[in-house]
Amino acid sequence: MDCIKLTGIRCCSCVGYLPKEQVLAQWLEVNLRLWLDLAPASQRDRLEDTLDYRNTIATVKHRVNTANFALIERLAEAIARLRRRAEWGKQVKIRVTKPYAPILDFGGKIKHENHSTQIRLGAIAM
Results as ranks from 00 to 15, higher is better:
Ala101Lys: 03
Leu75Val: 04
Arg44Asp: 13
Glu73Val: 11
Val92His: 01
Lys93Gly: 07
Arg95Leu: 09
Ile94Arg: 10
Arg120Ile: 14
Cys3Thr: 14
Ile103Asp: 07
Val23Ser: 12
Leu34Gln: 00
Ala123Asp: 12
Glu29Pro: 03
Ile57Ser: 02
Ala80Cys: 15
Thr7Phe: 05
Ala58Asn: 11
Arg74Ala: 15
Glu29Ile: 06
Ala58Tyr: 07
Ile119Met: 10
Trp35Leu: 02
Glu21Gly: 04
Asn55Val: 13
Gly8Ile: 14
Arg44Gly: 03
Ala125Leu: 09
Val23Asn: 05
Gly122His: 10
Asn55Asp: 15
Leu36Arg: 12
Gln118Ile: 03
Leu75Thr: 06
Glu73Gly: 03
Leu36Thr: 09
Ile94His: 13
Arg84Met: 14
Ala78Gln: 15
Leu18Ile: 12
Gln118Thr: 12
Leu121Tyr: 11
Leu47Gly: 04
Thr50Val: 04
Ala125Ser: 13
Thr97Phe: 00
Tyr17Val: 14
Arg120Leu: 15
Gly89Thr: 11
Tyr53Ala: 01
Tyr100Leu: 01
Pro19Phe: 01
Ile79Pro: 00
Glu73Lys: 06
Asp2Tyr: 02
Ile103Ser: 07
Ala25Glu: 12
Glu48Thr: 04
Lys5Leu: 00
Leu18Arg: 10
Gln91Pro: 03
Ala67Trp: 07
Gly8His: 11
Ile119Glu: 13
Trp88Ala: 00
Arg44Met: 09
Leu82Asn: 05
Lys20Asp: 14
Leu36Lys: 10
Ala41Met: 07
Gly89Tyr: 04
Ala101Arg: 08
Ser13Leu: 04
Cys11Arg: 04
Ala78Leu: 03
Cys11Asn: 10
Tyr100Thr: 08
Arg44Lys: 09
Lys20Leu: 03
Val30Ser: 04
Arg85Leu: 14
Asn114Cys: 13
Asp37Cys: 00
Phe69Val: 08
Asn68Tyr: 09
Phe69Gln: 08
Leu38Thr: 12
Phe106Val: 09
Val96Trp: 06
Gly89Asn: 03
Phe69Tyr: 09
Glu73Pro: 02
Phe69Glu: 14
Lys20Gly: 00
Leu51Lys: 02
Arg120Lys: 14
Gly107Phe: 13
Leu82Ala: 05
Arg85Ile: 12
Glu113Cys: 12
Leu36Glu: 07
Ala76Gln: 03
Leu121His: 14
Arg95Tyr: 05
Ile119Asp: 07
Ser42Arg: 15
Asp2Leu: 06
Ile119Leu: 14
Arg33His: 12
Thr50Cys: 13
Glu21Ala: 01
Val64Thr: 03
Leu34Thr: 03
His115Phe: 09
Leu6Asn: 07
Thr50Pro: 06
Leu6Ser: 06
Gly107Asp: 14
Arg81Val: 08
Gly8Gln: 05
Ile72Leu: 09
Gln91Phe: 02
Thr59Asn: 10
Asp45Val: 05
Val15Asn: 05
Gly89Gln: 09
Glu48His: 09
Pro19Val: 00
Cys11Ile: 11
